[in-house]
Amino acid sequence: MKVGLFVPCYIDQFYPQIAVATLQLLEKHGCEVGFPLNQSCCGQPMANSGCESDSKATAKLFVENFKEFDYIVGAAPSCVGFVQEHYDIIPQTEEVKHVREKIYDITEFLLDILKIEKIDAKFPYKVGLHQSCHAQRGMRMAQSSEINGPAFSKQRQILEMVEGLQFIELDRTDECCGFGGTFCVSEDAVSAKMGKDRVADHERNGAEVITGGDVSCLMHLEGVIRRQNKNIKMVHLVEILNNTSPTP
């Protein structure tokens, strides 16, 4: 199985350790992983800002980079979801269709494709799980609190395999962190307020660590935590699953 490693732009530039963890995690579970060196971004920032047409060239580049792989995997539901949902902006060639169909977020790939049941990792800390809106309401990787139905969460399910990890429960299970792409700067007052409230919810409920699957949310919350000098660590769930997370 040939897996193409998709490393979203801000992971590549600011959080390379998350990409390293993703790569190692895939390899540990028997994947042959390739990293197309000419990749950049999925194109979402322009599209969410209303400029979908400015995303087309980036989308085409993406497909060019990943069309040869059996699967494409990234540690970012938001970016993966964008490829799945919005790559209808470019002509639907077989290659485009293939990429849209075979791209996975790491959590779903491990659970649904590799069907792993065990993870060799230990993380004896109190952890708050911030499920990004795109993971939850976009890709339906978890039941959203608005909808009545059996509760489930794939990210939680996989983290439960980690030894010693203890979940804290939040007052508002799935409130948005306020990042929202260019929203974080065009509506900076609301965005920052949402970030502060989200961090406060974790703090109130005793989290030592906030984890999640989307780096954009984590970057936003980390920005708040560092500004407020809070004693909470921010780590991506692949770092925990790969046993390479910094400890609080």
Partner: peptide, 25 residues
Amino acid sequence: NAWGKEREIPQAPKQSFREWYLKNR
């Protein structure tokens, strides 16, 4: 800097993932 009014900018690592990959893999 609208981001920076109430949030810190991410700490910049020395190398990108791509640079790490080229060096290590």
